[in-house]
Structures are given as C-alpha cells and as structure tokens.
Design a protein around this nucleic acid. Structure first.
Lengths: 225, 225
DNA sequence: TCGCTTTTTAAGAGAATTTTCAGCTTGACG
DNA sequence: CGTCAAGCTGAAAATTCTCTTAAAAAGCGA
C-alpha cells in the first residue's frame, strides 16, 4: 500500500510518515501543493493525506486538480480550523474525509483504514524473514511461540532491515529513517541498537543474524545449521 | 519514476527539471555535491543527472561515494569539457553515461530513456570475468561455491579492473578512484592491494590473474589450463 | 515525585582495514 | 652479465571501525 503525505510542516510530516509506515505503507512526503499534485498524478497511491494550509496552492485546489485528472485515490484532508466552510469546501472539492488538527493517532489510523479498506485491499500486519516474524501492529519480534518486545527505535531499525532482506541497508538510511534528517545522532547510537537487536535475536534462539558490511551498513542473514 | 538533478547553475537546473517533469519524472534538484550524495543515499531514484563541476566536491567524487555505498541508480554525467580524461574518469568511477554541454534536449531525453529502460529490465548486482564473479551487493568475490570477502578498498580496485577487462587500467585511475584526488597515496599502496587481490585469487584457485604493464597499470587476464 | 522504560552517551576491548617498510624479484637496456 | 628502476610480497605498525557494556539522561505514566 502506498501513501502520499502533503504537509508543509516538516515535523508533523515526519510524524505522519512514521504513523503510515507503522501501518505498512510505503510513504512519500512532499511539502507543497504543486509537488502534491505532481506526485499524485505520477504514481499510484492508495491514500493521500492532504493539509489545507500549504505554502503555494492550497489543499482544495490540489484535490480539485487531481480529481479533474481522474485520479480517484481517497483523500483525507487535514485542517487546523474546525470551521464548517472548510469541511464543506473540502468535501465538495473531492476529498473523502477530513480531520482537524490536533488529532489522536488512533483516530488517524482508524480513518486511514476506513478509507483504504474501501478500496478493497488487505492491510499487511506482519513482516517475516527466515524463522522470525515482526508484528507490525504490536511491537514484537516472534519466533514460533516465543516473542520479545521491541522498543520503538529497535522496532524501526528491525523493520527497515526486514524490508530489505536482500541488500545491505546503509547506515545513513537507517539513521535518517529512525532518527530523522537533522537529528545529528552518532553512528555509535545506531551501533548500540544493533547490539540490542542482536541480543534479542540470540534470546529468541533465531538463526537470523545481523551482518555488518564495513563502512556501508547492515543486512540480515541466516546462519546455517 | 523519480529523478535527482545535481547541478549548481540554477537556470540550467530549472531547465533540466522542466525537461524531466515533461517526461513524467518526479524530480528533486540540489545545487552541490554534498547534498547530491545525501539525497542519493536516502531516497530511491530511477536516474541521477550529475554535473561534474560543482561548488564543493566534484561529480566524480559523488559517483564514487554513492557507488561505494552500493547505490546502483543509473548516473548520467554532464560536463562542459569534452575531454577524454573526464569521460574516462566518469565512466570508471561508476557513471553509466555522459553528455557534454551544450546539448540538444532530444538527445538528453533519449539518454534518459535509454538509462531508465535499462534499469527497469535488469538489476545489475554482479560483475563476471572468466571463472570469477564479484558480488556488488555484498563485498565478496566468488568462484563456483567458494568465496572470499573483500575489504572496501580491495573491492573498489577489483571492481575497476573487472569493469575494464579488455584494457589496462591506469595506476593513476585506480588511485584516483579508490583513494580520491588529493589523497597523496604512494604507488606502493596500490601495489600492496594488488598483492592482496592476487593472494585471494590464488586462494580461490581461479584462472584469473592480474597482469602488470610496466609504468602503465594493471589488467585482468586469464591463464590457460 | 517515584519508578519504570527508553534513549543517549561514554569507554575500552576487539576486529578489520589500511599503511608502511624492508628485502626480494623481475625486466629493460646498455 | 651488471645495474637500475619498477614491481612484488609478507609482516608489523598504525589507524579506523565496530561491538559490547554500563551508566547517565530523558521521557512517561501513575
């Protein structure tokens, strides 16, 4: 499932991205209306999250434009104002639902699911590799009947690794996606988490190990016997 | 399809962005080499357009860096000079194609399509020569079922040699691409690495040898029986 | 605030990689 | 041959990266 987030406030955008990714969406983020239209027209999304207040053209215009181009992806509008005109305008312009900021994460998730269920897809809630399974709804890592709890950051790191089981995941990618662009975290921080995860994998007695590629990053691998 | 443009001249960059967008690419533009590397490492692009002359680090170094991180996105280099050394360096460093400025829009479009078509069809993750194979996703050299691990620099040297199996690779080219422009490493350093690689080839019992051409450089060759 | 979990930081051990050096071999050329 | 420059190699030294702990700091709910 793919999601597009159109939101100019970077921090909120990052938080939303996280939420969507926790729901197993592949997520693109853009920070203005023009890009929103471009992206919506160029790639097939299952849902578009759209802020009304944007630096260039506003959310209403974005919906209108993409609808006029026959894109029928569900649109969830986000607005700081709880005013009736906004809602009406949004729905008239072609949005499928709206939410007012601030909002509870649970409510957002519920609405996301309501909108995407409608389009008839199944929501992926597990990631598997070799003998382990990552539960995307809870936050734990399982092997057969055993399971360990993962903290949010451990979970994010593991999810990225399990999403790219074939290739190495760059240290840059991991840090960017787990801590964010300008977090300024040290490599050692990531290393500590890798260490935490390795301990938990040993605890589970899994055949999965996290391999280091010097100067590059990490990848999962399965130990023989 | 997503494109990244790395070009410091704003007006040219804007023109390029327009061209890409007309071809239905979602396009990011950055104006210096450092940002180019960051973007390339953090998002999946289908093509990267890269100017050689950039304010901070040059285009060669950009390609070299992202390739050393195993990013295999096709790179189209742009150069004002039509000099052979530039082309050679670019292609050795891991670029897929180059164009000299000024250029015709049609030619650019044709090259873009050639490169992205290619990437759609085959994912290049191995380099082969005679009886050996270089795994570009991991860091190892294989012969049949045996394999040896290569360190980052060993890997780079080997990749350059295997990229140019027909001709000799100049010592300067090797040093430039593996150690960088102003590293000031001695020839003996390269010799040491050649020696490491030879040992590993012997270990693999490969028919491949690294031949020295006095005062020039090295080339791969296959020993008979 | 207290107690718990999570995250960050720090430090040292340990590995892996890279560089350096000395002595040796090879090839070119008179 | 003899000599010199260029190249080769193994070993040690130096450096850089990584791993693992433990402890400090931060966050969070009761």
């Amino acid at each position: 499932m793919r999601a597009l987030i159109v939101e100019d406030e970077k921090r909120l955008a990052a938080a939303l991205k996280r939420i969507f990714e926790d729901q197993a969406f592949v997520t693109d983020v853009v920070y203005d209306g023009k890009s929103g239209v471009e992206y919506a027209l160029c790639a097939p999304y299952d849902i578009i999250l759209l802020d009304i207040m944007l630096p260039d053209i506003d959310g209403f215009e974005v919906v209108q434009t993409i609808r006029s181009k026959k894109v029928s992806t569900p649109v969830l509008m986000l607005t700081a104002k709880d005013s009736v005109p906004d809602k009406v305008n949004g729905l008239n312009a072609g949005a499928d639902d709206y939410m007012t900021k601030p909002f509870a994460t649970e409510e957002l998730i519920a609405r996301i699911h309501a909108l995407t269920r409608r389009s008839g897809e199944v929501v992926l809630d597990e990631l598997a590799y070799a003998d382990i399974t990552l539960d995307l709804t809870g936050c734990d890592l399982k092997k057969e009947n055993a399971s360990v709890h993962l903290s949010p950051k451990e979970f994010e790191v593991m999810r990225l690794l399990m999403n790219n089981p074939k290739s190495a995941v760059l240290k840059e990618t991991l840090i960017l996606n787990v801590w964010g662009a300008e977090s300024g975290v040290e490599d050692n921080n990531l290393e500590a988490y890798i260490s935490f995860l390795r301990r938990k994998l040993r605890f589970l007695n899994s055949s999965v190990t996290i391999k280091n590629l010097q100067k590059i990053g990490y990848r999962l691998s399965q130990e023989e016997g």
